[in-house]
Write a protein that binds this DNA or RNA. Sequence first.
DNA 1: CGTAATTCATTCAGTTCTGAATAGGTGTCC
DNA 2: GGACACCTATTCAGAACTGAATGAATTACG
Lengths: 283, 283
Amino acid sequence: MEWSDLRIFLAIAREGTLGAAARRLGLSQPTMGRRLAALEAAVNQTLFQRTSEGFVLTHEGTAVLAHAERVEEEALAFERRLAGTQAQLDGFLRISSSDWFGRLMLAPVLAEFGRLHPRVCVELLTDARLYSLPRREADLVFRIRSFDEPEVISRRLLHIPYAVYGPVHGPRNVGGDGEGIRVVTMDTAFADMPDARWLAKKLPKAEVAMRSNNRDVQAILCAQGAGLAVLPRPLGDATPGLQQVDVGEQPPGRDTYLGYHRDLRRLARLRAVLDLVIARLAS
Amino acid sequence: MEWSDLRIFLAIAREGTLGAAARRLGLSQPTMGRRLAALEAAVNQTLFQRTSEGFVLTHEGTAVLAHAERVEEEALAFERRLAGTQAQLDGFLRISSSDWFGRLMLAPVLAEFGRLHPRVCVELLTDARLYSLPRREADLVFRIRSFDEPEVISRRLLHIPYAVYGPVHGPRNVGGDGEGIRVVTMDTAFADMPDARWLAKKLPKAEVAMRSNNRDVQAILCAQGAGLAVLPRPLGDATPGLQQVDVGEQPPGRDTYLGYHRDLRRLARLRAVLDLVIARLAS
DNA sequence: CGTAATTCATTCAGTTCTGAATAGGTGTCC
DNA sequence: GGACACCTATTCAGAACTGAATGAATTACG
């Protein structure tokens, strides 16, 4: 049995089709099919059922999935452990954050970092989904909750104040219970975020005009008159066409945290970007 | 990084040279060198120091050895788990036992088994060294100590009586403290085995003429007049030129145990050979 | 000191494996 | 129903990898 084929096995198990698995691993669909066939021949067992829904694990396949996952875990730990001892200031660095934070807060700092360390290739991923640090989908993650995994080193970076915004030519004050007011707020999946709940409590009668999981989109909708929005002040203040609206009370702010894998704590380029980010942003 | 290269890494770490590692994996020395170079390039780190003593792990290499070992463990568990669900009665089966036990006790039973299940290829390894069940160096092990690893299923197979033997034309009785008697006994490494200790206590003045870790060798030496020997009765009674010698007391017998890996308990061919061995030998 | 037996590195022909292209099947949407 | 998107299997030329052979350097030993 080729150990590398376990990675193919995992990819197919996760994606469900050869094509998708191939794309994820940067291989081709015929190769996936052949390597899987080779694995199944080596263990003399059918691991997947070929259904019209795609490749679904057989009973035996399910039984060994956990083993393959632990192989992956240790193989990744092997790589991380070595990456962590790299003293040179070159190589890749993958950073993940929310959209507006990456655009407005990180991008300028990373631009400066790029000038200081031109041999480090930084990749900034802004995505709604959370990237996994243990799987090394990202080396450094910024987010608004602290990290509780024991293998992740976490620290509070800064406090972000929030405010209510509306279009520049709209009213500067809004009182009452929100009767007749339209608002732009978070996606229903994120409806329990503190600012969304604050807004619902402060303006209970307000009508939700639009929702988005993307703060940038909210800001633009707001500037174009779709409704009021609670936005991080760095975003609201930087978005043309927006002005703060006084509703008699300030919304709660939020702390932003950063996290990285323990194994990478000695990775020089991570250290370097960390130091710069903290110097420029920490409060 | 190719996960398969971790297996090359492990083999080189264990063997110390490319050639030996290649032999163990059934590959060639140039391939080992190239694959290791590829691994080192992938992690961008030197894993081995090329010394005149061979390949020795660098600091970084040592640090990740444990990870590679855990990858191996899980990959082997993956294979075992699947082998354990094989319902067909064909494939390989590797059995390990001591020399005389394999020759006299197991060989006839395995011959019968071969007639019953011709598609199963049984490999009987008789070796002084203990084969590892977790690493699947053997599927079924017979030995004189019970197994205490939690993942190994163990059972007592039978009691083997022992007796003192000498050449057919020698004396039938030996009394006293062994003064002037020559004996053949276990290798010094196994000197603390119950029968060896019993002999030393029973005939304290006897002179040790020869030692061997191999019971078959002991029996032949004994038959050719090298000295008395404590032998398992199945061996002593079956060896031409030997007769039992009365020293006034019977040596202690020993229990023989068999063990196999938990993961293989549903392996049909293992079950089959197990049932036959128990039917023919258990007592 | 010289021979034999190691070791690893390099070369090169032959095999194996890869991916682009293609064919064939299935489900979805207009 | 037809166009489309997506899937897997197959083909085939080219790239990548393999191992036998060889070279070079070192150690062991008489």
